[in-house]
Nucleic acid binder design. Structure first.
Length: 271
DNA sequence: GCGACAG
DNA sequence: ATCTTGTCGC
C-alpha cells in the first residue's frame, strides 16, 4: 500500500515512454508541410506551464493559438493546476502533459474549428535520452503534429556543449541557419537553430510528432520574431503576470484563475 | 565529492 | 521553471 519508490516510478515511466514511442510518427503527414510557404497552414498553437518563484506545485497551464502567418492571437486558455509529479530530467512529460492535454481537449470540445494544425512545445521532442521527450509525448497523446523547442541544450546521447559545439554556434550567421545534433548512433536527433538575426544563442528544435525535422526547423524559423517562437513566447505574458501580481496581494494561488479564461478575437464569444 | 539536470 | 540590476542599443 505504500507509494512506489521513486526508482520504481521511473522504471515504469521508462516503460511507458518505450510503449508510446511505437506510435511516434517522425515524418510529414500534413499537406501544408509540403508547401514551400506552408500555404494551407492557418493556425499554430503553443503550450507551456508557468510557475511562480517559491512554488513548484501550483502552475498555470496555458494554450494559445495564433493565426499563420500573421501570428495574431486567436485563442487563449489559462488554467491553474496543481501538479502531482516532480520534475525529473527525462520525464518532464509526466509532470506537464496531463494539463496540456486537458487544455487541448477543452478547445476541441468548445471550439474545434480553432484547433491548431501544429503545436509548439516548450521542451524537447526526439532530442531526448530515450528519444521521446515532452513534444513527442504530447504529440502521440493528442494526435496533433508537434514541434519541440528547447532553450537549453540537453547533453545527451553523445551531444555535448563541447568546443566544437560552441564553434558551430558561432558559425551560425543569420536567422534560419542551423546545424544538426547528431547522436553517437549517427542519428540526427534535432537541430540547433539561430531563430532570428538578432539572437546569438540558438534554440534546439526536434521532432515532436507528425512532422519531419527539416520541416520543423523551417516552420520554427518562420514563427520567430525573436529568439523564442511566437506561439510559446506569447504565453507567459499576461497570465503569468497576473499570477505574480495577485500572489503579491496575498491571495490564494488556486483562486487566481479558477476557471478557463478564453479570449477569442476571431469568433464572437459564446455564451 | 563533483558535475549534470528540457521545464 | 523563477529570481535580479543595471546596462547597452535602437
Amino acid at each position: 500500500m505504500s507509494a512506489a519508490p521513486a526508482e520504481d516510478q521511473v522504471r515504469q515511466w521508462e516503460s511507458e515512454q518505450a510503449h508510446l514511442r511505437q506510435q511516434l510518427v517522425e515524418d510529414d503527414t500534413e499537406a501544408w508541410q509540403q508547401n514551400p510557404d506552408f500555404s494551407g497552414l492557418q493556425r499554430v498553437g503553443g503550450v507551456d506551464l508557468s510557475f511562480i518563484k517559491g512554488d513548484d506545485v501550483n502552475a498555470c497551464a496555458q494554450l494559445v493559438v495564433l493565426s499563420y502567418p500573421d501570428m495574431e492571437l486567436l485563442y487563449e486558455d489559462s488554467q491553474m493546476v496543481t501538479l502531482t509529479a516532480p520534475y525529473i530530467a527525462g520525464f518532464l512529460a509526466f509532470r506537464e502533459t496531463p494539463y496540456l492535454l486537458e487544455a487541448l481537449q477543452r478547445l476541441k470540445k468548445n471550439q474545434p474549428e480553432l484547433l491548431p494544425q501544429v503545436v509548439f512545445v516548450d521542451g524537447n521532442g526526439l532530442f531526448h535520452y530515450r528519444e521521446f521527450g515532452l513534444a513527442c509525448h504530447l504529440g502521440v497523446l493528442s494526435g496533433l503534429p508537434c514541434v519541440g523547442v528547447a532553450k537549453n541544450l540537453l547533453q545527451v546521447q553523445g551531444v555535448y556543449k563541447s568546443e566544437e559545439h560552441q564553434s558551430q554556434i558561432a558559425a551560425l550567421q543569420k536567422g534560419g541557419d542551423s546545424f544538426p545534433l547528431t547522436a553517437a548512433s549517427g542519428k540526427v536527433l534535432g537541430k540547433a537553430l539561430r531563430s532570428s538575426d538578432k539572437s546569438v544563442k540558438p534554440v534546439y528544435v526536434s521532432v515532436g510528432h507528425k512532422i519531419s525535422l527539416d520541416t520543423a526547423v523551417r516552420l520554427t524559423h518562420s514563427c520567430c520574431r525573436y529568439r523564442v517562437p511566437e506561439p510559446i513566447r506569447q504565453v507567459p505574458d499576461d497570465a503569468a503576470k497576473d499570477l505574480k501580481t495577485k500572489k503579491t496581494k496575498g491571495q490564494q494561488v488556486q483562486k487566481i484563475r479558477p476557471c478557463v479564461c478564453v479570449r477569442n478575437r476571431v469568433n464572437v464569444c459564446m455564451h
